[in-house]
């Protein structure tokens, strides 16, 4: 018996030691100095207004003056709450199990009530639902895609897989007329992930790279307006790719390989500001080891300057799933709850 207990204890120690090393090594790139500082204004403090438990993680899907909409990890369920944040109700969409299987882990939902658009990335389609009438249609996209943004009632801009050596590019799709406009512009460094946003005010798209500090700003005709950069120093994508020829074809496939470090994660445009959730520690910050908060960097939307930064709390054992800034408030969605914060005004 003593031998067995000894072997079990030794195995436990070896496993725990091994995992400690693995976890510690994976965090090192985030914890070293990167050569930039953030500006934290003391007057910017978040004040928790309300907290609401949820059974499953919710992700911001859209908002209007009265209602905030969320999608869940189940594409059939849309949740919503009023601006007072009083109760969460749900809407069920009729999506077949077969389609659901294709959607799981590869979709996002955008709601501009009464329309709900499910971006079915791996189905080369946009599923359009009218939440009032229940009518739905399926709009084909040129191929699978991984980003989409609505730029008008009927027009979407997608970041799609070209199937050729450029790997990915942008296109514009009118879901009513089915008119498709592809572009060969703006294809630089699109293989790694990013977030595509649209500013109604500027009529511009913002593509925020997640693995380097580039922000590509372009109009709906795909003319580059500006290339901008976040404040960190990661000019090169912090992800390695393998490229190889597809079997029996000259087409090139790109697959991620080796280490990867996410830099600019969640982002949102609101009024004249771009808010970017950065996962990189600035030199004037303390370690983020306990992950009790995560930083939001604020830029002017014309990207002429970085303005300041503030923190959103991340409670223990929680992840920030999405955030939404509106009317001096921030709604943050976490693993098992939502939190509404009020924050003082930012720099002009």
């Amino acid at each position: 018996m003593t031998t067995r207990i000894s072997i079990v204890l030794l195995t436990t120690l070896v496993v725990l030691g091994f995992m400690f090393i693995i976890v510690h090594a994976s965090r090192q790139p985030y914890e070293k100095k990167h050569g930039f500082n953030r500006l934290f204004l003391p007057e910017i403090k978040l004040r928790l207004i309300k907290k609401m438990p949820v059974q499953h993680p919710l992700y911001i899907a859209g908002a209007d003056n009265e209602t905030l909409y969320f999608h869940t990890e189940d594409p059939r369920i849309i949740a919503y709450t009023d601006a007072g944040f009083n109760a969460i109700k749900t809407i069920s969409l009729s999506i077949s199990d077969t389609i659901c299987k294709h959607l799981i882990n590869a979709f996002s939902t955008h709601i501009g009530y009464p329309d709900a658009f499910i971006f079915a990335y791996n189905m080369a389609a946009i599923l359009c639902y009218n939440l009032q009438t229940g009518e739905h249609t399926v709009i084909s996209t040129p191929s699978n895609y991984n980003n989409a943004v609505q730029v008008s009632d009927s027009v979407f801009i997608l970041k799609y897989f070209t199937g050729d050596s450029t790997d990915q590019s942008f296109c514009k799709l009118n879901i009513h007329t089915k008119q498709l406009t592809k572009t060969n512009l703006l294809t630089e460094d699109l293989t790694s992930s990013g977030t595509l946003l649209y500013s109604n005010k500027n009529a511009s798209c913002y593509y925020i790279h997640q693995y380097n500090n580039r922000i590509t700003i372009f109009d709906t005709a795909f003319h580059s307006i500006r290339s901008a950069y976040t404040i960190d120093t990661f000019t090169q994508s912090q992800i390695q790719y393998l490229s190889k020829n597809k079997t029996g074809s000259s087409d090139i496939l790109y697959k991620s390989s080796g280490t990867r470090m996410l830099i600019n994660y969640l982002s949102q445009l609101y009024e004249d500001r771009l808010y970017v959730n950065s996962l990189i520690k600035a030199d004037n910050e303390t370690l983020l080891t306990d992950q009790s908060e995560t930083v939001i960097d604020v830029y002017s939307t014309n990207m002429d300057k970085y303005l300041e930064s503030f923190y959103i709390p991340v409670p223990s054992k929680q992840h920030l799933k999405s955030f939404y800034i509106f009317n001096g408030k921030i709604l943050a969605t976490y693993t098992n709850h939502l939190a509404l914060y009020e924050f003082s005004s930012l720099s002009k």
Partner: peptide, 22 residues
């Protein structure tokens, strides 16, 4: 013994994913 080592490794891995990873 090997089963215990592997299952413990997988268990700790998932715990670490849930608590120490973005």
């Amino acid at each position: 013994y090997l089963s215990y080592g592997l299952m413990l490794l997988f268990t700790v891995y998932i715990y670490a994913i849930l608590h120490y990873s973005y």
